[in-house]
């Protein structure tokens, strides 16, 4: 029930955020390069935006995989393993994303040739 509701709440927020992300980063279509991304990530407002976007997108994606897996897996121990695997995947990719958004110093990267 909670998983069902959270999937819908995250969907609505993601729809707006995805639109914003596409409008800012990919419209009109252009060739993305280092400066392009790093300039945006130097802005604290964008850092916050992307941190939330990343967490919500990962949650929605992995919760969706969980719902699909749950429909096709009846063995309880398998379900537990899948759940554990999804949590680990989420944690690893959240860490990778946050390293770029928060820890990676894009202000320095912009200044460096």
């Amino acid at each position: 029930m909670t998983s069902w509701l959270l999937q819908r709440v995250s969907a609505v927020i993601l729809l707006g955020m995805l639109f914003w992300h596409l409008a800012a980063a990919h419209f009109p279509p252009r060739d993305i390069d280092f400066d392009n991304v790093v300039t945006r990530l130097a802005d604290p407002a964008w850092k916050l935006f992307y941190a939330v976007f990343l967490a919500l997108a990962l949650f929605h994606a992995l919760n969706g995989v969980w719902q699909v897996a749950g429909d096709w897996t009846v063995v309880q121990s398998h379900r537990r393993s899948i759940m554990a695997l999804l949590w680990v995947t989420g944690a690893v990719f959240l860490a990778l994303g946050l390293q770029v958004i928060v820890v990676f110093d894009s202000v320095v990267a912009v200044a460096r040739p």
């Binding site: 280092f34 991304v37 790093v38 990530l41 990343l54 997108a57 990962l58 994606a61 992995l62 969706g64 995989v65 699909v68 995947t89 990719f93 990778l96 994303g97 390293q99 770029v100 990676f104 894009s106 990267a109």
Partner: peptide, 20 residues
């Protein structure tokens, strides 16, 4: 489509991580 996008999301995170 959801499973495909989920897979793309993970790839996207790995690619953007190359900034580091």
């Amino acid at each position: 489509s959801g499973l495909g996008i989920a897979f793309y999301l993970l790839l996207h995170i790995v690619v953007i991580h190359q900034l580091v």
